[in-house]
Amino acid sequence: MKLVDFLAEEAIIYSLKVRDKKSAIKEMVEALTQSNKIPVKEVDSVMVALMKREQLGSTGIGGGVAVPHTKHGCVSRLVVTVARSEEGIDFDALDGEPVHLVFLLLSPNETAGAHLQALERIATLIRDSDFRRFMTTASDKKEMIDILREVDGHPTRSLT
């Protein structure tokens, strides 16, 4: 499973403007509409689904990373996007720390394996503190994409 195959590059946000969880997710979902990954009229319904999942347990799984995700009928294949926040977002994360890196996943309703594989891939990647550091200190959006391509090209190799 390669994340970059599903990555909506145009929707990547180099620096999130907002500081709270809901606004951050909203900013990312809107970026997905601007890059034509999801229709504008679905924004509200996608937001509801994502926030509903957050209420059952934060997707801020620790280490300054959050992975809001849901299944939704408005996509026909898995869509992944990433955003960075310098100041950090209050995600009510498991470790209580602010989140600096957000991966957002949307997958179609009937999908079985791909969604879980993507979740697993992200969980594996972010266990590597070098990956987290490189992503959060990237100097622009292109560098973020390059890092993701680099780690995806060598699924078992870490960055150092």
Partner: peptide
């Protein structure tokens, strides 16, 4: 694969 995503459902903080 889903364990890290399940943990915050049963722990507010850990």
């Amino acid at each position: 694969a889903s364990l890290p995503y399940f943990l915050p459902m049963v722990n507010r903080r850990a």
